[in-house]
Design a protein around this nucleic acid. Sequence first.
DNA 1: ACAATAAAAGATATTTATATCTTTTATTGT
DNA 2: ACAATAAAAGATATAAATATCTTTTATTGT
Lengths: 145, 145
Amino acid sequence: MGIFSKTCEYAVRAVFFIAQRTADGSRVGIKEIAVNIDSPEHFLAKILQDLSRRGIIQSVKGPNGGFYLDAQSLARPLSDVIEAVDGGGIFRDCGLGLKECSSKNPCPLHHDFLDVRNRLQNMLESITIGQFNEDLNLGIVVLKK
Amino acid sequence: MGIFSKTCEYAVRAVFFIAQRTADGSRVGIKEIAVNIDSPEHFLAKILQDLSRRGIIQSVKGPNGGFYLDAQSLARPLSDVIEAVDGGGIFRDCGLGLKECSSKNPCPLHHDFLDVRNRLQNMLESITIGQFNEDLNLGIVVLKK
DNA sequence: ACAATAAAAGATATTTATATCTTTTATTGT
DNA sequence: ACAATAAAAGATATAAATATCTTTTATTGT
């Protein structure tokens, strides 16, 4: 298990891929996405359906249909994807699983964790879905393997 | 899902509790541990069996038996517990799940993640199992609820 | 030796995450 | 209208994590 669930990993990779692949205003189908981010097609379909319902990504059915991102979606912080899929627990929950952990009633790791979590959150809030399009085009960063 | 698995959360809480509770050289039984860290007794038993086998904690059977920590174990970094239970993936694996992600072949989040993960690792390596005994005694930090 | 204790080990159950397959609905071009 | 396309939705399957229960083994005090 990584920091995120597998579902969430697929979601982020897919969103980055859709951003790059449809920057020209086109759409991209589930099959092409799955192949290019190395994920199980039908499982990814479920994930994208959910993201679409939540308005994180856009989709149209039928010929020439597929998934894409509007300007607003491209500008979203990546943290929105994480929150949509895994929930915000990773940004908020106690590292040791205590429900009532707080600065008033802290677990032993509370203060240290607060720092790490805040850094993670700041990082994911400051990254936008569309910001890697160029790096992906240039092959400087990758989404599979 | 938090940063760690539930198994790992129980393990860390238990280890901290054993450290404090047996600082006087005594042992503590599984039942008392489970109650005080609010975990399912039999499940925790499995976890502690495993930690015991790996030498992260100590145990003796029979009357007056139970779990305890020797001086060496008390001085261990908390990261050893995490590694034993969840594996080191959290310190090393790609945030997006790519097997071959590296500085040469990075995912879009590679550099940012490296920073967060290193901080987490440094933090967990610099915390020792025994270092919260006093705070636990004083009630400044807690292990349940 | 024996009974009591407590962890170790084994077996099984339940829940959640991950994955696959099939059917339905919306959209497009002819 | 119709056929083709592609996502949405529904149903089911598999694997992994979490949890529970039972039996065995080691240790202790009598």
